[in-house]
Design a protein around this nucleic acid. Structure first.
Lengths: 208, 208
DNA sequence: ACCTGAACACCGTTCAAGT
DNA sequence: ACCTGAACACCGTTCAAGT
């Protein structure tokens, strides 16, 4: 009756990815072991090499998928800018933080590769996330009636801010510092960034 | 004449830390191996255990020292706020980025531990870095003649911003996105953050 | 007190062999 | 085509011995 041990044909690749997500959740990127994933899935340590050229390739694939669900989470938070760009942007930044805090291991795998992994494939996925931020910044500027010039740069600043808060929150540097809740910290910072950008655009447009 | 192989008494611990820094520079945190450090220094793989209880403890010690020189770099950039807080703050943020870009491996070891390492000892060192940021934020607000209330929160936002830009720059997400130079991105973002904070404080103080 | 040598478990990776 | 078994190098860690 047990329908388990039939990885001898089909779903090994998917099963390994699932196991990798578990390992990531349990102990972060350092705990992602190809052997352990194979063991949990019921195959030999050599079996994964039919589907992944190396441990890093597994990690890359997991990170790539992480970026996909990350982008989906942002998109959902943005919700096409309803009811207005400002509110939606706040909701999206909360979704950003929520993702990182819910899956710190995955988030670390997505961004923690540092210089060790080029991760060309996941770069596209990351760019997709940036594009969502960019669209929301453009919408926000339009709502405020100013030029969307420099929106890309502004989107990068918002991203950096969210990323920084997320990292500090996950690594405990935030709570340790002052028992501060990451959400309002990120929220007011983004507001300030956007307000300053709007003012700058206004004074550039109407220098009466 | 070769004064090398006399690790049989004194400087093993220091030598291991130096080797660890090399490994970090070469391949990031993942490349920091206790065995390899021992080999480079000319001792057995078991020797380090007289000085460090585990690999993680070595990494922790290196990270702790990293925070020390990091704080020193920020302090030097700040230079007691000369000639004015605004200029000094810009210089300090440039020093922040320069540190991360000069030693990405070390920087990753300092912050990349994510949830895996509590790193209580290095938490103090990190707090010291935050304190420098905090002092500069206070000085900036004083220069602009507004209350320093909420300076800690603002300092955290500045930190998150700098950290985010540094990480994105190091991991290549920034250049890949648009060929943008990280320095002006961080600089204008911090300016915007500070300007918005000043305006908020002004409107709160003088509601005529 | 500080280090070596030998040992064990674990991991990444390869390859010849099985089905 | 997909997986097992055996093998190798490497790493973290422990411990009994050496000096």
């Amino acid at each position: 009756m047990s329908m388990k041990r039939k990885y001898h044909h089909g779903a090994l690749k998917e099963a390994l990815i699932e196991a990798a997500l578990e390992l990531l959740a349990e102990g972060g990127p350092a705990a992602l072991s190809l052997s352990e994933a194979a063991k949990r899935v019921g195959v030999t340590a050599a079996a994964p090499y039919r589907h992944f050229a190396s441990r890093d390739e597994l990690l890359n694939e997991v990170a790539r998928r992480g970026f996909l669900s990350f982008a989906a989470a942002l998109e959902k938070g943005w919700d096409e800018g309803r009811p207005d760009a400002a509110t939606a942007m706040w909701r999206m930044s909360a979704a950003y933080l929520a993702f990182a805090r819910a899956e710190p291991g995955l988030y670390a795998a997505m961004f923690g590769s540092a210089a060790s992994l080029a991760a060309e494939a996941s770069a596209d996925a990351a760019d997709h996330a940036l594009e969502i931020l960019w669209r929301s910044v453009v919408a926000f500027l339009q709502l405020r009636g100013v030029s969307a010039q420099g929106a890309r740069k502004l989107a990068l600043q918002v991203w950096a801010l969210a990323h920084g808060v997320a990292m500090l929150a996950v690594s405990g540097h935030l709570d340790a510092a002052k028992g501060l809740d990451p959400d309002p910290v990120l929220d007011t910072a983004i507001r300030n960034l956007m307000e300053a950008a709007v003012r700058r655009a206004e004074s550039a447009a109407g220098p009466r």
